[in-house]
């Protein structure tokens, strides 16, 4: 099997000669707005401590690198040649001021961002998205690619229809949504507002909810796992219509107010958590 794969790889014409290296650079404001696009291949953005933008690209033959704009707004990307069929892959590596606002767009290209403090907005069709760092606002959206996010953002918006979403870090306001992708969130520090929803993707939450914070976890048909710190103060309303609800939180007091779903009270119940699943089960536990 392994041999077959190796042979297959060797049989594919490696388009080294077909790639051309291109470098571009320009002075830029510390908060420069950058729009970059590369449909196929990869796109990588790294924040640095300089007031300039540098682009190193390996562009497929027939494609060209577009680069233009001003000190405050730059647009760059790989433009495919006129040939029909799939866009040949190009690699794009950008170094930009840390405080930049960055917009990335790709189709199958994977997008990788690190070290940006400004706003980051990434969108792909099937390319995977990885972000490391502390952007002030992070919006990442894919149709089929998976999202792997680490760091902090005061506002975080993550979305994929078919891809999975993984987040580890801190977020004040957080919205996460998938159709069938699984969602795994490890939130350090209390979230102010969280909203997590899927149709058939599993949801796993681990982290705290702030004193007057709120968290809504909702799925149509998958399992929801909710792990909270032992010190969490919260009122948890759980509506599981056909799935099983398992409470493994030792100090949770259970009640069922009239006309309401099952309710668990932790401490004084100052945060509000709602968990909703039509067909899936719900597990509540204390964080290890």
């Amino acid at each position: 099997m392994r041999h077959a794969l190796l042979l297959l790889l060797l049989a594919v014409p490696v388009p080294l000669a077909a790639q051309q290296s291109v470098e571009r650079g320009a002075a830029a404001a510390p908060t420069v707005s950058i729009r970059a696009y590369n449909l196929a291949g990869s796109i990588r953005v790294i924040g640095w401590d300089r007031d300039s933008v540098h682009v190193g690209a390996s562009v497929a033959r027939g494609s060209r690198l577009y680069f233009g704009g001003s000190r405050t707004a730059l647009k760059l990307g790989v433009e495919a040649g006129a040939s029909s069929g799939a866009t040949p892959p190009s690699e794009l590596i950008l170094h930009v001021p840390k405080g930049a606002r960055v917009w990335l767009k790709s189709a199958t290209a994977g997008a990788d961002v690190e070290g940006i403090d400004g706003e980051v907005d990434v969108s792909t069709v099937s390319g995977n998205i990885q972000v490391r760092g502390d952007p002030s606002l992070l919006a990442a959206e894919s149709m089929e690619g998976s999202l792997d996010i680490g760091g902090s953002a005061s506002v975080l918006r993550l979305k994929s229809a078919g891809g999975s979403i993984n987040f580890k870090g801190f977020a004040g306001d957080l919205t996460v949504s998938t159709v069938s992708g699984n969602i795994q969130l490890n939130v350090s520090g209390p979230v102010a507002t969280g909203r997590v929803e899927s149709v058939t993707g599993r949801i796993a939450w681990a982290g705290a909810v702030g004193a007057v914070g709120s968290l809504d976890l909702q799925t149509h048909g998958a399992h929801i796992q909710l792990a909270l710190p032992r010190s969490q103060d919260a009122e948890i309303d759980v509506s599981a219509f056909s799935g099983k609800v398992i409470n493994g939180f030792p100090s949770a007091r259970r009640s069922a107010p009239p006309g309401k779903p099952v309710r668990y009270l932790l401490g004084d119940g100052s945060a509000h958590i709602a968990v909703r699943s039509l067909k899936g089960g719900v597990t509540i536990s204390a964080e290890q």
Partner: peptide, 22 residues
């Protein structure tokens, strides 16, 4: 791209089924 259309349609099917059940 045809692959994109396939992805969209597959996810729309998942959602349509969920809507019908809800």
């Amino acid at each position: 791209a045809p692959e994109t259309i396939t992805i969209v349609e597959r996810n729309l099917d998942v959602i349509a089924k969920a809507i019908a059940e809800s």
